[in-house]
Design a protein around this nucleic acid. Structure first.
Lengths: 255, 255
DNA sequence: AAATATCAGGCGAATTCATGCAATAACAAA
DNA sequence: TTTGTTATTGCATGAATTCGCCTGATATTT
């Protein structure tokens, strides 16, 4: 054990953290950064000004924005980010030390990866480059990327090689990001993605479906699985919420 | 580690210890080093300045950071981005339709992936999640990710599985991002990364080494290959530049 | 318009830094 | 060994950075 688990952040480090946060959420409030990094808002403001003058971020009243701001994609993201954070919090409670977890991609999964506490010792198998990077930030997490052809659309690896690799795994938990979800089951629109998700479900002891409530009761063209194949449904809503009523008989646990 | 601690450390030894500490923790405070090594902070400061001018660490107010610390930085933010863009332009000229290309990670590679013209029809094999994402933005590019354990430090997949997968490939071109480069060859500091790079070189018809001039004449602990194993050296400098003189006899083409 | 939040700029305390200098250590030649 | 040369180190000084707090100005919200 080393003596110097210094809590002191060097200025440069703090600024890197700020950039990381901004890249992740696309925007950030000075007040949030102040809380996260445990320094005064003045210091944050000075950092933001400095980073802005170096052209690394865009400073706005109250906080800062990412430089490469993809309007259409990210606005939806930021809009749902709070909800996804709630989902992440619920999801993380299911994770125990020593688990092996299989995960797909998607922004909800990304929020989970980001919120993961640093003291968890777990092994993640993933098909998403983005998630693998986010997970690799956690020192006690082992990340295995299941390689294959990267789908231009969904940005996860797909194809026979991935599927057969997944078949060789026996995971404790499968965390699925969801695109279509209704009483008939989970659905998706991309054939290759469906193959991967099916394999993931088959290789896991328990399956967790995570989705923002917005996607409830939407049906896409291809079926991934029926609801009796999943163990947990996690949304940002309270389990007793009206919208979730139709699912209480169909899914084992709703969180 | 008890009685011998009273032994006086020579400057070189001390600096090696400093580098060790930084590699271990990614950062270090001058005050901590002063305690650990039992010398005054002035001496530490002088050491840090020296190591920084040799480009081995990044000195900041209060201590120093590892060079590879800013992993999650944005594109425009990456160090020496303009230079890397020049390298990317030169590199891309070597790519022809239909090629199969094997690539490592690194920010230079990222610049290349980013600058790639959309009309190129090529297949990329990569071990870097970041590069795979960047490449997947190009509609006519097929991206295959070579999966494996993701190294927390270098953020590329490493391990036996990757290496043996690479051995099965026969690529036209291998594009290597470089960390250490001097007349004796290419070097790197991470054992696992070296194994992957070696395999990549072996599986490719031609090898391209790309590096910003700053990294020329730097020697890291582990050898990746000698210079006669690479075909092209690409830097941001003109091929006739003074700094490149020592390499004209050693590398086939300098661009 | 009033209430609230965010801002820029200045101040002071604490820390870190660069620099010069003298004491000491390391090393090479005699 | 001794002697002379150079490198290294610790300390002292004043300068520079960093950071939290404060104030009055500006922006945003209600």
């Amino acid at each position: 054990m080393s003596i110097l688990e210094s809590k002191v952040l060097l200025k440069k480090e703090r600024q890197l953290q700020i950039i990381h946060q901004i890249n992740l959420h696309n925007k950030i409030l000075s007040s949030d950064l102040s809380l996260i990094l445990n320094v005064s808002e003045d210091t944050i403001r000075r950092d933001l000004n400095e980073l802005a003058s170096e052209n690394k971020i865009v400073k706005v009243h109250g906080g800062a924005l990412s430089k490469s701001y993809n309007v259409s994609a990210t606005q939806a993201d930021t809009y749902a980010y709070d909800q996804k954070k709630i989902i992440a919090t619920k999801m993380i409670k299911l994770i125990k030390d020593g688990m092996t977890i299989l995960t797909s991609g998607g922004t909800t999964m990304r929020a989970i990866a980001n919120q993961l506490p640093n003291n968890l010792h777990v092994t993640f198998f993933t098909v998403s480059p983005l998630i693998s990077l986010e997970l690799a930030e956690h020192p006690n997490v082992e990340v295995i990327f299941l390689g294959g052809k990267i789908s231009n659309i969904s940005k996860i690896s797909v194809g026979g090689e991935v599927v057969s690799k997944i078949n060789d795994i026996k995971a404790d938990l499968c965390v699925l990001g969801i695109n279509g979800f209704d009483p008939e089951g989970i659905s998706d629109s991309d054939y290759e993605v469906v193959q991967v998700k099916k394999a993931m479900i088959k290789s896991s002891r328990q399956v967790v479906a995570t989705t923002i409530s917005e996607k409830l009761n939407s049906d896409l063209r291809l079926r991934v699985c029926t609801l009796n194949e999943i163990d947990y449904l996690i949304t940002e809503l309270s389990p007793s919420h009206e919208l979730l009523k139709p699912y209480h008989d169909l899914v084992k646990y709703i969180l």
